[in-house]
């Protein structure tokens, strides 16, 4: 697969996540085949590809969310900062605190806005006292670019916000636990164009602090927000490289067909 990877030159950041020969099975269905990829720190990496190509499945491997699905089996190595996350000694619960996730549909808990954001810090004991927790919540909401909209109604239920606000709340909730990697599974597919623009702007901000991996169906979105792009097709990683190069000068004919709209 390494032959597929092109110019590494322009990137001077560290490798955050290394996946090697990853296989995923749902029962008898071989969903991910031999995927090897290196994801860089402080970078937005987009996974694109037609529906059912395995991009979401691969994303869920990175924080072991697939463990919650009974029939799912994962083989191969996935390392974050050189540490094998599928090692027996790794607690998936600890891992998920380090690798945050934002889902396709905004899923705020049926709690207040404050409690939604404070949820992770409380579970992991990140705050020393109430004032500290207040700080963490405010910082997270500011990072989620939603502070100004909700600062006067932190006690209102999170479910009462609009769709775009809910999704930014979920992003704030995810960054409140100070993760190192942020996984986003089609975070804008349930949002209107204005909310999408806000979230995309936010993603660009988040890049300064985190390694962001985003799955998206929209090639324009991948082109707008990501620095590197991986193209998945039928469970294979077809091509992985700098976003500009993938979109303007793809090596593999399947990539070209997909981005020009001939398959997918």
């Amino acid at each position: 697969m390494n032959t597929m990877r092109l110019t590494e030159s322009a990137v001077d950041t560290d490798i955050k996540i290394t996946a090697k020969d990853v296989q995923v099975y749902y029962g008898d269905n071989h969903a991910i085949k031999d995927v090897s990829v290196e994801i860089q720190d402080k970078t937005v990496t987009a996974f694109i590809g037609p529906s059912g190509c395995g991009k979401s499945t691969f994303l869920r491997c990175i924080n072991r969310m697939n463990d919650t699905i009974d029939v799912c089996r994962v083989q191969g190595d996935i390392k974050i900062d050189g540490e094998d996350i599928y090692d027996k000694r790794v607690d998936p619960v600890q891992l998920r605190a380090k690798v945050g996730m934002v889902f396709q549909k905004p899923n705020p808990f049926p709690k207040s806005i404050y409690d939604n954001v404070a949820y992770g810090p409380r579970i992991h004991g990140l705050a020393k006292n109430k004032a500290d927790l207040d700080d963490i919540v405010e910082r997270a909401l500011r990072r989620g670019a939603i502070w100004n909209e909700v600062k006067d109604r932190l006690d209102a239920p999170g479910t009462g916000l609009s769709g775009g606000q809910q999704q930014r709340l979920c992003i704030a909730r995810a960054v409140a636990t100070e993760p190192e990697v942020l996984l986003m599974d089609e975070p804008c597919s349930a949002l209107d164009p204005i909310a999408t623009a806000q979230v995309e702007e936010l993603i660009d901000e988040l890049r300064k602090s985190y390694s962001v991996v985003i799955v998206t169906h929209s090639m324009q979105q991948a082109a707008r927000v990501s620095q590197r792009t991986a193209f998945f097709h039928l469970g294979n990683l077809v091509e992985y490289g700098e976003t500009g190069q993938i979109f303007t000068n793809p090596v593999d004919p399947r990539t070209e067909n997909y981005i020009t709209g001939r398959i997918g």
Binding site: N63, M65, T68, V93, Q94, L95, R96, A97, K98, G100, M101, F103, K105, N107, P108, F109, P110, Y119, G120, I123, H124, C170, R173, A174, T177
Partner: peptide, 17 residues
């Protein structure tokens, strides 16, 4: 909804939490 559970598990909560 399963999304609630996913959201909580994705933040590093245990099943009983």
């Amino acid at each position: 909804p399963q999304a609630m559970r996913d959201g909580s598990l994705g933040l590093g909560a245990t099943p009983s939490e």
